[in-house]
C-alpha cells in the first residue's frame, strides 16, 4: 500500500515553451531505460529476492514512480499550450494525431513502451546486476538529456534525477555485497 503526497519529489520549473525538449524527455518517461521500466522492474523482482534486499527494491521502485511523476510534469508543461503546428515542428505531429495533448508511455522515437524492456530472471545475482546496469544506463541517458536541454529549469531537475541514479546503483551494489555475506552461512552456524 502506498501513501500519496500531493507534491513532487523535487520542484520542476519549466521556463520555455519547448515541445522538442518534451519529445526528448519521453526517452526517460516510456523508454527502455526510463523511469517506468525501472519502477516496474524493481516492483516485480522484489517478490523473489532474498528477504534482506526486498526493502531496497520496494523503496527504489517507489522512488522511481516519483521520478516518473516529475518527468510527466516536465513533458506536460512543455507541451500543454503548444499548437498542433508547434507540435508538428517539434516532431510530435504523429503523437498529437494519436494522443492529442495527452502524455503516453513511449520513447523519444515514438516507440510505445513494452514489457520486454524489463527482465526478471528469478536469480538474485542476475536480477541485481540487471538493476545496476539499468541505473547506469539511466544515468547516461540523463547526461545526454542535460547536454541537449536548453531550459535551465529542466536541466536542474535532470541533474537531480541523474544523481539519484548514482545512489540507486550504489544501493544495488551494496545489496550484492549483503548477499555475498550469506555465502557458506550453513557452515558458520
Amino acid at each position: 500500500m502506498w501513501v500519496y503526497e500531493k507534491k513532487l519529489l523535487y520542484p520542476v520549473e519549466v521556463t520555455t515553451c519547448n515541445p522538442m525538449l518534451a519529445k526528448y524527455l519521453m526517452e526517460q518517461y516510456g523508454g527502455a531505460d526510463g523511469e517506468l521500466a525501472a519502477a516496474l522492474r524493481y516492483m516485480n523482482q522484489r517478490y523473489t529476492v532474498p528477504d534482506k534486499v526486498i526493502g531496497v527494491l520496494t523503496d527504489i521502485s517507489t522512488e522511481e514512480f516519483s521520478h516518473l511523476e516529475m518527468l510527466a510534469t516536465m513533458i506536460y508543461k512543455l507541451t500543454k499550450d503548444a499548437t498542433p503546428e508547434q507540435l508538428e515542428k517539434a516532431g510530435l505531429g504523429a503523437h498529437f494525431v494519436n494522443h492529442g495533448h495527452s502524455l503516453f508511455y513511449e520513447n523519444a522515437g515514438g516507440v510505445p513502451f513494452t514489457a520486454t524492456y524489463i527482465q526478471s530472471k528469478g536469480d538474485p545475482i542476475a536480477d541485481l546486476y540487471e538493476d545496476i546496469a539499468a541505473e547506469e544506463k539511466a544515468r547516461a541517458t540523463y547526461q545526454w538529456l542535460i547536454d541537449i536541454s536548453d531550459d535551465p529549469g529542466v536541466s536542474d531537475a535532470l541533474r537531480f534525477l541523474r544523481e539519484r541514479e548514482n545512489i540507486h546503483s550504489l544501493r544495488f551494489r551494496e545489496s550484492v555485497e549483503i548477499l555475498k555475506e550469506e555465502r557458506d552461512r550453513k557452515k558458520i552456524f
Partner: peptide, 12 residues
C-alpha cells in the same frame, strides 16, 4: 558447491 551458495529463510 556450498561455498558458492547462499541461503535465506523467507517469510512463511
Amino acid at each position: 558447491q556450498s561455498q558458492f551458495r547462499g541461503t535465506y529463510r523467507p517469510y512463511v
